[in-house]
């Protein structure tokens, strides 16, 4: 049973779902500064989404940590992908940078008139941010964004497995 709650006028939902195979207006991909899609979700995006996404990324070039860019979703079920370059591997000021990254991703999505967006547990897993820290920072960033007039109507957190799902349940 998916968890859900309202923050301001935005519906926040928690589901267990492969984010790259999710029908949503946009989802966030935790990107690297060189914007190469690489392995993991990046590989799934490449293989399911087709070549247009990579071509758009080549046009953009590279980004710094906390920056974000939007591309189309190619053949994916999502219309857009927000490529957000987050911090990784215990780097300095990791939580502050993660917070800024989430806000940047939401802002970039808004610029494209996106109103429904899915996030993975940001920075958790491969990039080493503990799930509890990821949840705390994400929830704080969503509340800050929405309390300052953010226009997103629905935010979906896509847990990749039951372990991630359970870690986020306490936020609902």
């Amino acid at each position: 049973m998916p968890e859900q709650k309202k923050i301001q006028n935005c519906e926040l939902r928690l589901i267990q779902q492969d984010i790259t195979d999710f029908e949503v207006e946009a989802f966030v991909f935790y990107a690297q500064p060189n914007l190469e899609l690489g392995a993991g979700f990046g590989s799934a995006i490449t293989r399911r989404g087709g070549q247009s996404i990579e071509s758009e990324l080549k046009e953009i070039g590279s980004l710094s940590v906390t920056e974000a860019a939007v591309t189309g979703g190619g053949n994916l079920k999502a219309k857009y992908i927000v490529h957000a370059v987050g911090p990784a591997f215990q780097e300095e000021q990791i939580e502050e940078k993660l917070h800024t990254t989430i806000l940047t991703a939401l802002k970039k999505a808004e610029e494209k008139e996106i109103r429904q967006i899915a996030f993975p547990p940001m920075g958790a897993g491969f990039y080493g941010i503990p799930l509890d820290a990821s949840r705390e920072v994400m929830m704080r960033a969503f509340e800050e964004y929405l309390s300052q007039g953010g226009k997103m109507e629905e935010i979906v957190i896509c847990a990749n497995d039951a372990r991630e799902y359970r870690a986020f349940q306490s936020a609902f």
Partner: peptide, 9 residues
């Protein structure tokens, strides 16, 4: 590469 595949896929 392999770690990321196993974490995410």
């Amino acid at each position: 590469v392999v770690s990321k595949d196993q974490w995410e896929i």
